[in-house]
Nucleic acid binder design. Structure first.
Lengths: 112, 112
DNA sequence: TTATCACTTGAAGAAATCTTCAACTAGCGC
DNA sequence: GCGCTAGTTGAAGATTTCTTCAAGTGATAA
């Protein structure tokens, strides 16, 4: 028996659990881009970006190929966009809940 | 904006990046459950489950309240289900030619 | 009151992940 | 060949997250 399904799901989500990797995926939603461009849009060192791209590649979420002097990256499936969109929605629900809780806290107890 | 948006997104996904937490959320999709039941369905120690529930609580993904001798947990928003569903879909695309997990995914098609 | 069930908490060592650095490969122009 | 831009890799130390343990709380039953 291989890795259980829920373990694979956890790994999938963990792959998205890094700010640079999230940004890369969001940028690639508009189409393939060379590392060069990603580097210009994300403030991070080249070697660090490369490490994060390797994580995404190993997880099968992006593909890469060399095009002359540049290396191009692309989403391996448009489903990635759905996942990011779902994340955005839930962030909305969860953050507004937290904010209202924070407001309530501020209203009832003195400070802090 | 104190915490950048992409950082908040990364934290959201990282919260899902653990097998036990994934299983808890999937089980709670069917409705609120006491820790007792979760414990019976997930093979993990009580203290470990409690730690993972605390992570989900802090992230605002679940809510809890005491009901007599039991502590009940529930999804804080049904949007969580959407996220899990999107995860399932992308796992299908990404896993296609990786290993037999795909078969398992198709077989249960709902979850677990 | 004592015991028991149902859970939570804090702490500590183990394990995984992140960041950075130095060194490396690949293509291109001279 | 040489130098340059573009990108990758492996390794090491720092940080974060996980798991487990021992001790704790709260409700209820005897």
């Amino acid at each position: 028996m291989s890795v259980p399904l829920y373990q694979a799901k956890a790994e999938l989500f963990r792959t998205l659990g890094h700010p640079v990797r999230i940004r890369v995926l969001e940028l690639l939603q508009d189409g393939p881009k060379p590392v060069r461009d990603l580097l210009a849009m994300i403030e991070v060192e080249a070697s660090n970006l490369s490490q994060q791209l390797a994580v995404l590649r190993r997880a099968g979420m992006v593909t890469s190929h060399r095009d002359g002097p540049l290396v191009m990256y692309a989403l391996s499936t448009p489903d990635v966009a759905d996942l990011l969109a779902a994340g955005r929605r839930i962030l909305g629900s969860v953050l507004t809940d937290r904010d209202s809780l924070l407001d309530e806290l501020r209203a009832t107890s003195g400070d802090r």
